[in-house]
Design a protein around this nucleic acid. Structure first.
Length: 305
DNA sequence: ATCCAGGAACTGT
DNA sequence: ACAGTTCATGGA
């Protein structure tokens, strides 16, 4: 992490290939999003370190990420944790130059890489949040997924209100481990998704399932296998979590409907491509399938193509 | 109305 | 192993 602490604010120095505005477009894709707010080019994000709530205002000036603390700066230890969170959130450890080398040789990715240069995967550093969000979104449209997330967060999450705006934290697994299926059925979760989510919360309470344990596995196959042993997690969810939480750039949610639609639009296909066809397009994406997928998702937000 | 949605488990063969 | 069915509801 490359940063400088100034006590009342922080500066984070991103790698060369970074476009804050492009990341904002992704963050701003749903007006039902409750885990951050965007105002005048800055992102407001509430995070929790130990028992402290830290409100961050994240802006971008002169190619530097500037982080301010509207409710006052926390101590240096917590500031560093906040900086680390933001570094991970924006996926700033990745060498996108390597991705662009791959993309520039590829028919499908070449234009996207140019058009969205500097876009990074907006990650979900918290494992529980990543898993729950993925499970919530299975087999429903994205708008409804956001509706479910909003209900879930506003029912079970902590919040902080500052100058009339309320900022929310994703619910903790400690809290969700104690609720029951009916609590989630009331929010229109299916019984199965409710079971999956509560079971995962319990597994995390027990310490059987942690981000650290997953990252200790010897390779990505082992991680994927560990995830897929959990009820409610299939190939798509495992890949999604590896991409958005564990920073595996080679993870590839190949069954993703958004990916299919993006390819159909981009290549002007009559129908959605089959898995086999997608694997042909992806033959040269080795190592960067997650970024390829993400850039294709991004293309779905340009209606005018 | 009708089809499909950022899938996965379950059931039957 | 593999295909078909069910979950459950909202969006377009």
């Amino acid at each position: 992490m490359n940063w400088i602490d100034h006590e009342s604010y922080m500066e984070i120095y991103p790698p060369k290939e970074f476009n804050f505005k492009e990341c904002l477009i992704f963050l701003d894709r749903s007006n039902l999003e409750v885990l951050h707010q965007i105002k005048e080019g800055s992102v407001y994000k509430l995070i929790k370190v130990k028992e402290s709530l830290i409100l961050c205002k994240i802006g971008f000036i002169n190619n530097v990420i500037k982080v301010e603390f509207p409710i006052g700066p926390p101590s240096i230890h917590f500031r560093k944790k906040a900086a680390e969170y933001i570094w991970e959130w924006y996926d700033l450890d990745q060498d996108l130059g390597a991705f662009y080398q791959v993309a520039n040789q590829d028919k499908v990715l070449k234009n996207l890489a140019h058009k969205y240069y500097g876009l990074r995967i907006m990650c979900i550093p918290d494992l529980f949040e990543a898993l729950v969000w993925a499970i919530m979104g299975q087999q429903i449209n994205l708008t409804f997924a956001y509706t479910l997330k909003k209900r879930f967060v506003e029912q079970f999450g902590e919040s902080l209100t500052f100058e009339g705006d309320t900022f929310w934290l994703f619910p903790s697994f400690e809290k969700i481990a104690l609720i029951n299926v009916d609590d989630l059925r009331k929010l229109q979760f299916t019984s199965r998704k409710a079971e999956y989510i509560i079971d995962i919360a319990k597994a995390m309470i027990n310490g059987e399932l942690t981000k650290e344990l997953l990252l200790q596995k010897k390779d990505d196959q082992q991680i994927q296998w560990s995830l897929m042993r959990i009820r409610g997690i299939g190939p798509w969810t495992a890949d999604y979590v590896m991409m958005k939480c564990l920073h595996y750039t080679s993870s590839f949610p190949v069954a993703d409907v958004g990916l299919h639609n993006a390819l159909r639009n981009l290549l002007d296909l009559e129908r959605k491509p089959t898995i086999e066809e997608i694997e042909k397009y992806a033959a040269d994406w080795e190592g960067w399938q997650a970024y390829a997928t993400y850039y294709l998702w991004r293309s779905l937000y340009d209606k005018n193509i």
